[in-house]
Design a protein around this nucleic acid. Structure first.
Lengths: 145, 145
DNA sequence: ATGAATGCAAACTATTTGCACGCGC
DNA sequence: GCGCGTGCAAATAGTTTGCATTCAT
């Protein structure tokens, strides 16, 4: 937490209460939060905060790689604090995220990247579906691609 | 192409000129197209087509897994015809996509999924950055995560 | 002939932006 | 005190939806 503040300061960003609270909201969450959810969380302490501020700061945090974006194609984009690098199984039912502890950017994939002379900006690996619990409550889905 | 039509028919969807043209646009493209780009392409033949129709059909095609969605977080979502399963290196400069021929949904990852009792609905693996050519025209970027 | 598909326009959701004010450094 | 950061409201981008009409089967 403090480490994040230091990184902000080091880059010349001011430490405002809003920024602190946004980072805290992300830090306390056990799942990926949407901008709205971050706002709701922050408003418990600072009811006056504007959604625009949330968005501006989340974007800034993504730009400097303190936070990463997760797009499920279902509703709004979600944000996650970058504590080390991680990919997840994300449940469409309850939003829960299971850490994978594996990153596909290696081996064969890395070899192709090198061969192509491709300069990687970012990568995205996300598996969506239903966790054990939500699976039971679901009927339709069957696709595994 | 014909195969796609058959799949539509088999599922009870009508073969309309619009649908045929949307599939053709995707088929002819050498890159992922946005809804707008599909529209532009289709309008060359059928100028009256509505964007709403494009969206409705793209969504339908995604639902039945004939097409897949690609979200770069830069501009609109892009669509790609599903000819077999593939992941790509996508260039943020020119939109070009290099097929990877590798899918991370195996080995270690698959083991975790099984262990978790997770029911996969879909997965997404995309690497964005700059291709060899565009890399030369770029200055800023350096992040490799 | 019938219901699915379309076009149009309006609605909507998520996000961004311009501007005047306020506050961290 | 300077200038970045904020709140507000309006703007925008992308996409979806309601409804009357048209068309594939």
């Amino acid at each position: 937490m403090v480490a994040f503040m230091e990184k902000l300061a080091a880059r010349g960003y001011k430490i405002t209460p809003q920024r602190r609270l946004i980072l805290e909201a992300l830090n306390d969450a056990d799942r990926h939060l949407s901008a709205d959810e971050v706002a709701a969380q922050v408003k418990k302490v600072e009811p006056g905060i504007s959604l625009a501020t949330i968005y501006r700061n989340l974007n800034m945090l993504v730009d400097i790689h303190l936070v990463s974006r997760l797009d499920l194609h279902e509703g709004p984009v979600r944000y996650e604090l970058n504590r080390g690098h991680n990919h997840h199984l994300v449940c469409l039912g309850c939003g829960m995220a299971v850490k994978l502890d594996v990153c596909p950017m290696q081996g064969e994939v890395q070899r192709i990247i090198d061969k192509e002379g491709f300069q990687v900006d970012s990568h995205h690996f996300e598996i969506t579906g239903y966790c054990r619990d939500c699976k039971l409550r679901t009927t339709t889905i069957s696709h595994t691609d």
